[in-house]
Design a protein around this nucleic acid. Structure first.
Lengths: 220, 220
DNA sequence: CTTGACAGTGAACAAGTTTTCATAGAACAT
DNA sequence: ATGTTCTATGAAAACTTGTTCACTGTCAAG
């Protein structure tokens, strides 16, 4: 793909930004005004260049109608594979969740000796959505939860709250964050590993629940 | 929010689908042709109604220029979606993934008849980190990918990129976003549903890849 | 020194598009 | 019965917008 000149990429960026902000493409005169061109033809030339260089596709005659970045494509195919670009607005902006480090899903003392397991930090409170719970993400190390379909390398989303019987929780045990299922039997509380090879119920005296695992993110 | 009449929501769906497929809005005449109106004014009236009901915002006088009201589709999901963290972990990368709507994991024409499946809108181009990939989240509807451990109700994180053979991609087929595995056999491209009950290979002539499914978010 | 790509002005045209006006039947509630 | 909303037609007006033509200038490469 040919290189874009400074102005060309500036115009392309402006166009994309306009789409992101307004959800529709700018007209040639919009671009003209933005860059203070005295003629629409200046824009027109740039658009032609952008199209020739393959980063923009115009729809002849149609107003405010473009496609962006026919991204390049699988060489051995004739089909055009286009990276989707376009307006937004239907999108629900989600708040972000800080990634906190790793969590041990094994026995409390069963993890890597070297300080691989990062200690948990306080969740970052994002300014945008204060109503959102202070969730955070933890990467799972270990295999104690594989029967609950939580595997080594997965990431779990932890949210604060009061765990119920049966919830999978992130609990701090012996200075170690572990991921287990919470089991209450009478007045006693246990942590249960979801792995047949592990002791069924681990009694817990001092339990610091750091949050409830609400969802798990798995790489595909 | 007032209820939409059947035709109104049909028009709205068509418009959104047009954006998803072409990345720009349809003109009034486009809509007129699609619905075989004899007059542009029929469309005009519907657009006025859509605007009055608050689901669409027109930009007076501007061609192919609209904004859509955000759909309050999934507030319960907002707590469980995180930004996909790439291989470079430990970097506490903030930033959010817009939730784009639903994706059909069934056959292209196998989705709910009423416009339940929201058409995909463009990812937001965030101003802060332009270098970050424009990821977005989609909720999966359908069961065509259950053998790949992607179930109805899961949320997939889609990222733009060049799909390889074997990647699970979000592809636009018949105006419908579908989630399938990309299979290349010689010079042909297929989409494969990961469900034994579905036809094994669906040949694809026109393929618009909207992104590659990088990870899946599952509720616990 | 010429050639070609790049960048621009200024004006005008043609087509694309939205918008308005006048009109009217069907469904429905008052 | 009557008004209102929804839906639609048909034509025209008015505006927006892409496109073209003619012309000028800069700058680096051959």
């Amino acid at each position: 793909m040919e290189e874009l000149t400074k102005k060309q990429s500036a115009i392309l960026e402006y166009m994309k930004g306009h789409v992101a902000e307004h959800s529709y493409w700018p007209s040639i005169r919009d671009i003209q005004a933005k860059f203070r061109f005295a003629s629409t033809n200046a824009v027109f030339g740039h658009l032609q260049a952008l199209e020739r260089k393959g980063v923009l596709q115009r729809i002849p005659g149609a107003a405010r109608a473009y496609k962006v970045a026919p991204v390049a494509l699988v060489e051995d195919l004739s089909e055009t594979i286009i990276r989707y670009e376009g307006p937004d607005e239907n999108a629900i902006q989600l708040g972000s969740i800080p990634f906190m480090g790793s969590i041990a899903a094994g026995l409390p003392d069963y993890t890597e000796s070297s300080g691989v397991v990062a200690s948990m930090q306080a969740p970052i409170t994002e300014g945008s959505r204060r109503r959102a719970p202070q969730s955070f993400a933890l990467r799972v190390r270990g295999d104690s939860m594989i029967d609950a379909d939580i595997q080594d390398g997965d990431t779990v989303i932890i949210e604060p709250g009061h765990p119920k019987h049966g919830d999978i929780v992130a609990a701090l045990i012996d200075g170690q964050t572990t991921l287990k299922r919470l089991v209450k039997q009478g007045s006693k509380t246990f942590l249960k590993a979801e792995n047949a090879n592990y002791p069924d119920l681990v009694p817990v005296t001092e339990l610091v629940i750091q949050g409830i695992a609400k969802s798990v993110v798995k790489p595909i």
